[in-house]
Design a protein around this nucleic acid. Sequence first.
DNA 1: TGACAATAACTGCCTAGGCAGCTAATTTGC
DNA 2: GCAAATTAGCTGCCTAGGCAGTTATTGTCA
Lengths: 150, 150
Amino acid sequence: MKHYAAASFKARQSIGYLLKRAHGLLMERAEAAFENHDITFTQWVILLRLRDGLGNTAAELCRGVGHDSGALTRVLDQLEKRRLIERSRSKQDRRVVELSLTRQGHAMLESLIPLTVDKLNEAVGDFSAAEFREFLRLLEKLIATLEAPK
Amino acid sequence: MKHYAAASFKARQSIGYLLKRAHGLLMERAEAAFENHDITFTQWVILLRLRDGLGNTAAELCRGVGHDSGALTRVLDQLEKRRLIERSRSKQDRRVVELSLTRQGHAMLESLIPLTVDKLNEAVGDFSAAEFREFLRLLEKLIATLEAPK
DNA sequence: TGACAATAACTGCCTAGGCAGCTAATTTGC
DNA sequence: GCAAATTAGCTGCCTAGGCAGTTATTGTCA
């Protein structure tokens, strides 16, 4: 089904614009919340994904967060330097570097969860339970379409 | 209403993550579609906003697209160099530079609308009319909340 | 009016992240 | 069983965009 028509197309109704704006405003708040905490929001997200089992190698993580592997290497460098993660060469596949949270990394991650959850709740505070559920469903539906090959 | 709780927080249900992913995938397609057309998607969006009256000065545009004024100056430089826009010092307020589309700028803009509309329709092709409407409504609701001062 | 704040546009500078290329290790196909 | 393709991680290089500072102009208010 075609929801947009070339003849009447306006910038403000584009989901591209709306997604960008919503994401941008949310990130602004997240980064502001993190700025006194000696860790970047980007870095923190990596810790979160490690904890949630969404990847324990660089390749898995960069597929997950949508960065390229070069960019991720540098984020991991910073996290390792701050002793928040550890890298160790895999014995099964020696190309792979296995990542794990250190005790400090775990502590850092946990300590900032309430802050993040708070910001998210602020953002969707006006949504009813039904609206929230529907919003997640539609976002996931959109993502599924965009992830499909063509 | 609180939709997220610290104790059960998981990366994948975060609207931050979902918005980023959806926007990233969409931009990927948009930029790919533009890559043989001698204009950047970013540049094209500026042309679009000029046409739609969403700003005809640098300051208005950068508030609209969320860039800073330095970044926008450079985008405008590129557009001017390609003769797609013109700058002229305002007579009412001599700090202001008024922007306008040239004939070529208009043509460039128009010629690429179908491409963009196509990509957007692809993205939301699986949505019913009701789903699409609701998705826009919820996105706008979220943005309104995030734009509110605190 | 005259100082001072605010605003528009612009300029360097810096950083994050994308891309291409590299090496090492592994998998695949003949 | 070996050459070719693939994959993991990493490194330079480049660009886009954010930030801070500059200049010119306008608005404000004592």
